[in-house]
Amino acid sequence: MEEKKLTQQESLELISKMIKETHTNIEKGGGNIFLLWGYLWLVVALVVYTAILQTGDYRAQWLWFAMPIIGYPSMYFMLKRQEKMAVTFVSKTISKIWIVMGTCALLLSLFILINPAAFPILFVMALIINAGVALSGLVLEYKIISVVGFIGILLSFALLMIPGINKILVFAIFPIIMLIIPGHILNSARNV
């Protein structure tokens, strides 16, 4: 493209063409963060469930801390490695949503160390993460992600009704619906 003067018609066409270019620029790895947290959540939940089932020792709950210990550094390196040639307003907004959600989740899990009976942690965590998924879906204008987010918010309340160790098993199902499936959908969408 050279530095040439344009007619008014050419100007309009150029503006329209360039704006369209930014719309087709779906960022690479958009679903990878969903997949990272989704699989991590699934694996840790199943490990905690199995450990308690096998040993009967509730100290296995400490294994939940594998999530922030593995998740946050992995996310940091994943974001650092991503080649972001252009940042859309949508991706910036979504990052900010997850910074807020992540901070809340981290502080809540630290508070539970001080007072383990303060609140039903699995319910609160599920609610926060599902709210994050629903908000991301709304901002992305991705219907399926918004829908699974809202379903997740609704299903979170089931964790208040299920007694004992089984609630961990239900908690393990959440990431499959709320993070893993949307993550794969997002990644396949950018490959189209």
């Binding site: 150029l14 360039m18 704006i19 270019e21 930014t22 252009a86 940042v87 859309t88 991706s91 910036k92």
Partner: peptide
């Protein structure tokens, strides 16, 4: 026209 639709671009 590109920058108007983006938060930033390299």
């Amino acid at each position: 026209s590109l920058l108007i639709s983006l938060a930033q671009a390299d």
